[in-house]
Amino acid sequence: MERTFAYLKPNSIQRGLVGEIIRRIEEKGFKIVALKMLRISESRARELYREHAGKEFYEPLLAFVQSGPVVAMILEGEDAVKRLRVLVGKTDPTEAYPGSIRGSFGVSVRKNLIHASDSVESAEREARIFFDESEINDYSLVIEGQL
């Protein structure tokens, strides 16, 4: 199974959407293999968004993701990266499909509720920023193999 990384940004927590977003992720058949709530340090934020360094939105993005707790997770599933990106929706909530997470709950391009890795390589790199290998759980769901 393919793994991907995501985290719920501070406004997801502030708006009380953690349970609803995780419910949607699980309903789509993703298996959560790692999950934790934490504050993102400046060094973690800079490492996570290093490809955006120097862009006009970089510093405001770093400040936003450090402004409160986040919920980080590693998910497993078939074609996990692509499927999660579809579920999350486009960055601009006005362009995100209705029913996607950002289409349903998003109000801002810059404060867009959730981050989802854009490739398997990014997912592996980003997951290592937040999780040690010992924090990733290998288990089977009762329904695995029945879908």
Rank of each mutant, 00 (worst) to 15 (best):
L38N: 09
F130V: 09
Y97L: 13
F30E: 03
V109K: 14
E78G: 06
E59G: 05
I32C: 03
I22L: 15
N112M: 05
V70G: 04
I143R: 13
K36G: 07
N112Y: 02
L38K: 14
V142T: 10
S41Y: 08
K82T: 13
L48S: 15
E135R: 11
L84N: 05
D92V: 05
G54N: 03
I136P: 06
K82R: 14
L61G: 00
L48Q: 15
A6Y: 08
H115M: 08
D92W: 07
A6G: 12
E76W: 05
A45L: 03
L48Y: 13
P93M: 01
V70D: 08
G68V: 06
V65Q: 03
V33F: 07
E26K: 08
E144G: 02
E144D: 08
A6N: 02
S134T: 15
G77I: 00
E95T: 12
R39I: 11
K82I: 12
A72M: 06
E27D: 14
S41R: 05
P10Y: 08
L61D: 00
S134F: 09
H52V: 03
F105T: 00
L147W: 14
V142E: 15
S134V: 12
D118I: 04
L84G: 08
E121I: 08
L62N: 09
D138N: 15
L87M: 09
K28Q: 11
G99R: 00
G77V: 00
S117C: 05
A6M: 09
I143G: 10
V18D: 03
P10K: 08
T91S: 09
V18C: 11
L62C: 09
R44A: 15
E78V: 08
N11P: 15
L8C: 00
S140N: 14
G89S: 01
L113Y: 06
P93L: 02
F131S: 03
M37L: 05
G68T: 06
E76R: 10
P69L: 13
